[in-house]
C-alpha cells in the first residue's frame, strides 16, 4: 500500500534553524531514509522551498486567478513529502514517528495514494 507522508511545520521556524541545526536534522533524516531505501520501501521524496517563492493559480469563474504566495494562509506549511510503500497504516505511522523523532515540531499527514505516476522525464527524452 502506498502512502504519501506529508510534512508540515511553521516555515518561519524551519528557516530560522541555524546551519548546524539544519545539518543535524538532515543527517538524522537521512538515517531514516537509508533504512527505508534498504528495505525497498521509499519512493520519491522532496523538500520544498519557502512559500514566499510560491505562486498559486486558482480557477474561478472565467479566467483563473494567479496569486502570489501559497494556496492557504495557515500556521503550518507543507514543507515536503515522502512516498512510502508499506504493508499497513501502522507501518506508515511507524515511519512518520521516526521522521518526527528526527525532526521535531512537525505535523505529518499520512495520506493513501490514489494514482501514482513515476518520474516520466527520462522516457520523454528517449
Amino acid at each position: 500500500m502506498q502512502y504519501a507522508i506529508l510534512c508540515y511545520n511553521d516555515e518561519d521556524v524551519v528557516w530560522s534553524w541555524s546551519k548546524e541545526e539544519d545539518a543535524a536534522v538532515m543527517a538524522r533524516l537521512s538515517v531514516v531514509q537509508e533504512r527505508l531505501v534498504k528495505a525497498g520501501k521509499l519512493g520519491p521524496s522532496l523538500r520544498l522551498l519557502p512559500t514566499t517563492a510560491a505562486t498559486t493559480l486558482r480557477k474561478s469563474q472565467g479566467e483563473p486567478l494567479v496569486i502570489d504566495g501559497p494556496f492557504a494562509e495557515t500556521k503550518e506549511q507543507l514543507l515536503g513529502f515522502f512516498i512510502v510503500d508499506v504493508a499497513s497504516l501502522d507501518e506508515a505511522l511507524g515511519i512518520a514517528r521516526e521522521l518526527a523523532a528526527a525532526k521535531t515540531g512537525s505535523t505529518y499527514e499520512i495520506r493513501p495514494i490514489a494514482l501514482y505516476f513515476p518520474d516520466q522525464r527520462k522516457s520523454a527524452a528517449e
Binding site: D10, D12, V13, S16, E21, A24, T104, G105
Partner: peptide
C-alpha cells in the same frame, strides 16, 4: 518532545 534547538528556533522565529 520539545528539544532545545527547536525552542531556540521557535523563539527566534517569533521574535
Amino acid at each position: 518532545m520539545t528539544d532545545a534547538g527547536w525552542i531556540e528556533a521557535a523563539l527566534t522565529a517569533a521574535r
